[in-house]
């Protein structure tokens, strides 16, 4: 029953895809994986906050992983998923957020000692969110995401201030809904 203890020991990671890259999130952070569903647009919200969904009576805000990483909005396919994440911000407030991703690959076990240090400068993705790299059977590299850092409210506000492509907003949300 001791949930908190168990959480710490989990070395299993959910692998999801964004364009051609793979990312890993510790399974303890993922509460749920939802199929793509209708997202209700919230007027005047920042562009990466694409709307809210009804998660068993709760109102869950959903973030587009692509816009969050500063690339073009995600194109919804039948494989698109929403990961329901348990986010702990720096002031210890937990919130639930939905992260819309291209598709969820698999769940694998990654031993801490096999994790390589994060990539150097010049990468597409800001490395402060990336805690390490993992190479699976000499194939492609998987980036380990610090999802708390990536999605905490402070970060969101900062991003909001820098005001990324506000104009994209309308087309993006429309695509999601249709």
């Amino acid at each position: 029953m001791d949930k908190s203890k168990k959480k710490k020991e989990i070395n299993s990671f959910i692998i999801f895809r964004m364009l051609n890259e793979s990312f890993a999130i510790n399974v303890s952070k993922v509460l749920n994986i939802l199929e793509m569903q209708k997202i209700t647009t919230v007027p005047e919200a920042p562009s990466y906050m694409i709307g809210v969904i009804n998660l068993r009576g709760e109102v869950l805000p959903v973030i587009d992983s692509h816009i969050k990483f500063g690339i073009d909005p995600l194109v919804v396919t039948y494989q698109t998923c929403i990961l329901v994440l348990d986010i702990v911000s720096s002031n210890d407030i937990t919130t639930k957020l939905g992260l819309m991703v291209d598709f969820v690959d698999e769940v694998i076990e990654i031993k801490p000692e096999t994790i390589l240090p994060p990539p150097g400068i010049g990468e597409t993705y800001q490395s402060k969110y990336i805690t390490g790299m993992y190479q699976k059977e000499n194939k492609d590299f998987i980036m380990m995401l610090d999802i708390d850092k990536l999605l905490t409210i402070n970060e969101i506000i900062k991003l909001k201030e820098s005001n990324i492509d506000e104009d994209n907003k309308e087309e993006n949300t429309k695509e999601v809904i249709n």
Binding site: V42, E44, M49, V52, L60, P61, T95, I156
Partner: peptide, 12 residues
């Protein structure tokens, strides 16, 4: 049945 709108939207 009112729910709080998520913190992320509190500026609206």
């Amino acid at each position: 049945v009112l729910k709080n709108i998520a913190k992320e939207y509190e500026e609206l």
